[in-house]
């Protein structure tokens, strides 16, 4: 992730502030505005940024901000806390050993579901779980081949069909098969879809009904812009989204759209994808995500001083 330029920007504003001996409302406003610009450039929802600006402003007491350095710390801390709060979607669901679970992957077209299914399978396989993948995408050209080749590379059993056209049927059969084979985590990959096409959402609901997932994971592209909120909300309203995985975080985008997805689904991010290979997958850490969003690697250290 390339966050250095953002870091430089921010510290520019903050340095200006720390140098001023008397902190007045104008200095605070200018500084806060610069932080908000950085957040807008990181794809945080425009409304969320406005709200954050208001909240932080209200939580600050000018009387307390005697010296510039003090003001800088209080402001940073306040922004950081507000963002961390926004990223907090509760405790993520985790599969338990000895208990069979079905995990269904959903999301927009091309956001990384199929790739992430394999990463997820591979992650838990290495932890000693018995995993398997079901390809319930009968729509996209080459979808089953993609999953098959991925699963073969990861040495994970898979189920799918080149001829069956009903994804609900495949999902049902695949999950049934792996249930009887005593697989711990049955991963169901689905087609990409978007809220504007209701038939696709209906199909997702039907798949969810037959596989009865223990967890539905919403996969979202870390480069997504302002459409993030409405799409995530629509998915949450149709199926029981329980976790989020943010992909393509190896790119240049900062991933601010994830805040919208967390807010809309009230679900936590559990992993991030950091590359095309199956081991490029990391557990999510809210505080370091927020630090990176702000371009401040040592934010936490600074706060604890």
């Amino acid at each position: 992730m390339v966050l250095t330029e953002l870091g430089a920007r921010l510290s520019g504003a903050l340095v200006k502030m720390s140098k001023s001996s008397k902190v007045d409302q104008d200095v605070v406003d200018a500084c806060l505005k610069e932080i908000c610009t950085a957040l807008l450039q990181a794809d945080v929802n425009v409304r969320l940024v406005k709200q954050l600006q208001t909240n932080v402003k209200m939580s600050l007491n000018l009387e307390d901000l005697q010296s510039g350095f003090n003001a800088q710390r209080i402001l940073q801390k306040s922004v950081f806390q507000e963002l961390t709060r926004l990223m907090d979607g509760g405790k993520p669901w985790v599969p338990k050993k000895g208990k069979q679970s079905v995990v269904m992957f959903v999301g927009l077209q091309g956001n990384g579901k199929t790739t992430t299914c394999t990463k997820y399978a591979y992650h838990y396989k290495r932890k000693g779980f018995k995993v398997a993948m079901v390809c319930a995408d009968t729509f996209r050209a080459g979808a089953f081949d993609q999953l098959k080749q991925n699963a073969t590379k990861a040495r994970v059993p898979f189920f799918g069909s080149h001829t069956e056209t009903d994804p609900v049927k495949i999902a049902e059969e695949g999950v049934e098969r792996f249930r009887t084979e005593k697989v711990d985590i049955i991963i169901v990959d689905t087609s990409g879809r978007h809220k504007q096409e209701s038939a696709l959402f209906e199909e997702m609901r039907n798949i969810s009904e037959v596989v009865q997932p223990n967890n539905v994971i919403y996969v979202m592209d870390g480069a997504m812009g302002q459409a993030a909120h409405d799409q995530a909300l629509a998915f949450r309203d149709t199926v029981d989204v329980g976790s989020i995985i943010v992909t393509k975080m190896d790119g240049h985008a900062k991933g601010g759209g994830a805040l919208s997805a967390v807010a809309a689904t009230r679900s936590p991010v559990c992993f991030i994808g950091t590359g095309e290979h199956m081991d490029e997958f990391e557990p999510f850490e809210a505080e370091s995500f927020v630090s990176r969003l702000l371009g401040l690697g040592d934010f936490k250290g600074l706060m604890n001083k």
Binding site: A141, A143, Q149
Partner: peptide
């Protein structure tokens, strides 16, 4: 490179 990319194009 990407899994299934050739088959995807073949299908089309």
């Amino acid at each position: 490179f990407r899994s299934g990319a050739v088959e995807q194009l073949r299908t089309h």
